[in-house]
């Protein structure tokens, strides 16, 4: 559905992507993890077609639903106006959204549970609400592919949870290919089927979340000791990964 084939990107002499290969089929959700500057964002941009490739190719449908990390809020559009922009892909240069496009925008807003602030101004929403609206815009494109750039990275824990539950709900419907980048391995545990680890040296690792989000590969990825903990949470047992940062040990 969406992926890269032997994609290489170099900025000057620095090779950022070296023959990167992955393909996310419909019904799967993949998380991309990696240290800063290792090419997560470049891989994301390459996947979306914003980043010219030195070699290799991109596999993607015509329209990809994209959720940026931050939204441009220079213009004070209403939430509904923002979401209906997702329909622009099918409208061409001179097209105007029609009733059907508004219906699609409204149902996308309902899907992410954001219909109650449909009439409010986008730039007056909180960060968490904005991300939901951007997700709704991506859904409104009608694309089978959803690409998210560090979803929830700027949100507090409650809003991260809300967004991840939403993402997991979309994953469980199994009708889309979903890819997101993240700094937090727990995001991958919460919402992804597979994970791509962009190792600091050497080729990227790819595998199911259960194998990838484990102490050994993550320690190699970040150079920080990691521990997997199981705990009671909500209705059942759940797992989380914890980094053990060096430094003062308060305990």
């Amino acid at each position: 559905m969406i992926g890269l084939e032997n994609a290489s990107v170099a900025f000057g002499k620095r090779t950022v992507l070296d023959k990167l290969n992955f393909n996310v089929p419909r019904g799967q959700c993949m998380a991309i993890l990696g240290p800063n500057g290792r090419g997560k964002t470049t891989a994301l941009r390459a996947m979306l077609g914003f980043q010219p490739l030195a070699s290799g190719s991109r596999v993607a449908p015509q329209v990809v639903g994209y959720v940026p990390q931050y939204a441009s809020a220079s213009q004070s559009y209403s939430v509904r106006e923002v979401v209906v922009m997702g329909r622009a892909t099918g409208l061409g240069l001179f097209g105007q959204p029609r009733l059907g496009d508004y219906a699609a925008a409204d149902s996308a807003l309902e899907r992410v549970g954001a219909e109650r602030f449909s009439g409010e101004r986008f730039d007056r929403l909180s960060g968490g609400e904005r991300q939901l609206v951007l997700l709704a815009r991506a859904l409104a494109t009608g694309s089978d592919v959803l690409v998210l750039d560090e979803p929830g990275s700027a949100l507090d824990l409650a809003n991260q949870q809300r967004l991840l539950v939403m993402l997991d709900g979309l994953r469980q419907q199994r009708d889309k290919a979903i890819v997101f980048t993240t700094h937090d391995p727990n995001h991958a545990l919460a919402a992804a089927d597979t994970a791509l680890l962009m190792m600091p040296d050497g080729p990227a690792l790819f595998g199911p979340v259960e194998e990838m989000i484990a102490p050994a590969p993550l320690e190699a990825l970040y150079g920080v000791p990691m521990r997997l903990v199981e705990m009671e949470a909500g209705k059942g047992r759940t797992r989380a990964v914890l980094p053990a940062f060096a430094g003062r040990r308060a305990a």
């Binding site: 979306l48 994209y66 939204a71 441009s72 213009q75 622009a88 409208l91 001179f94 494109t141």
Partner: peptide, 27 residues
Amino acid sequence: WSLRFRLNILSLDDAEARSLGARPDLE
């Protein structure tokens, strides 16, 4: 006037506009 909805798209960041099917540079 005919481009009025497109102007909404072009008023977004380039990456967002591109993901919504626009070619910001050309347009």
